[in-house]
Design a protein around this nucleic acid. Structure first.
Lengths: 193, 193
DNA sequence: TTTATGACTAAAAATCAAATTCGGTCATTT
DNA sequence: AAATGACCGAATTTGATTTTTAGTCATAAA
């Protein structure tokens, strides 16, 4: 049996996109790494963008699996959610691809890179929205628009974990994030309940 | 009495920065609008950036006065804050300079434009932080870091008023923003208090 | 016959020098 | 003493030229 050329291509592309980003990855390079003729790539993928989407799709699937694993149906909503989001952000931090592509998308508005990020965020948002819906059904959360709530929730989390540390220069410890998250989002800041 | 050349310059600069942004505003143009020799500008301001800062300073002062006016010491925190923030955002929407400069800062990383925005945000944040501190002192809000709370608060507001409408395509009515703001920030989303 | 290949092409991007623009200065004018 | 605008050098823009690269296709290998 001959080698699985498609897998070789995907593997090589993932490696190159990860290391060099979207723009700096050439199809010749992918072919060279995969030890495959360039034309071969085009038997599996119509163009560079589709190849990239395949990589991102795998990536998103991996992350979602991770988030899914972090959910323990027995534990309360807050705890599950926090653990899942922390896992995802950690994963993001470890795997450079995401932050590299985020940068690339903001600096150069590469359409494909933008799509990759968008798919990422969309998947994460859907996942959280579903979790919110479940929690509402279980009576753990007040009735609300799950999609909007998920959006607000993720934004708040990024505010606490990414934005504020960048502004103030001091990142929070995990415990602190947990506490602040409860204060600002779950319990509310108002004194008179 | 001769004309007040400084005022002429400031007025002309404000007009030009507002209409064309930082980069596209030339000192020759400002001089022409102000009907003043270019050298005259440099008797009042060391350079273009300082001229710009003067404009921004006036602008920030105007906005803060607006926010201050929106605060009624007799009314509850939530109401005051909401009204103040809404006024500020409305002001931003009306006066193009802000959004123009925000764009300019993101597209081209003009240092001066960045400074202008930063000063803006900083002033707003300080204002809100103070309001939060007062509310905590009055026992209306739980004890918290006022600066961080202000940051989270403003971010949430922008999420609701700017980001989410851009994502979902449908802006909220003022009433809705008020309600969501209370749900997500003041009262908290958790069902079990 | 089917699959794989890499030389080839058209188009996009990088390069680079000439031309232009613009912030800031200063000798002259008012 | 205050105001001015011609002037200067640095920075930016332009556009012609070269290089790179996504995608094709005639040929070779399996």
């Amino acid at each position: 049996m001959s080698i699985d050329r498609r897998a070789e291509v995907v593997h090589a592309a993932a490696k190159s996109f990860t290391m060099f980003g979207y723009k700096a990855t050439t199809m010749d390079q992918v072919a060279r790494i995969a030890r495959v003729g360039k034309g071969t790539i085009y038997t599996f993928f119509d163009n560079k963008e589709q190849l990239f989407e395949e990589i991102m799709k795998n990536f998103v699937a991996e992350i979602l699996a991770l988030a899914e694993r972090a959910i323990d149906p027995g534990k309360p909503f807050a705890e599950n959610l926090h653990r899942a989001l922390l896992d995802v952000l950690n994963y993001r931090k470890e795997h450079e691809l995401i932050s590299r592509l985020t940068m690339e998308m903001k600096e150069i508005g590469t359409a494909a890179a933008g799509f990759g990020i968008h798919m990422m965020d969309e998947a994460l948002l859907d996942f959280v929205a579903e979790a919110v819906q479940d929690a509402v059904a279980k009576g753990e959360l007040k009735p609300c628009d799950p999609k909007l709530t998920a959006y607000v929730l993720v934004k708040l989390f990024i505010t606490l974990v990414v934005d504020w540390p960048a502004v103030s220069g001091q990142p929070f410890k995990e415990k602190d994030v947990m506490r602040l998250f409860e204060l600002y989002f779950l319990d509310g800041i108002s004194e008179t309940s």
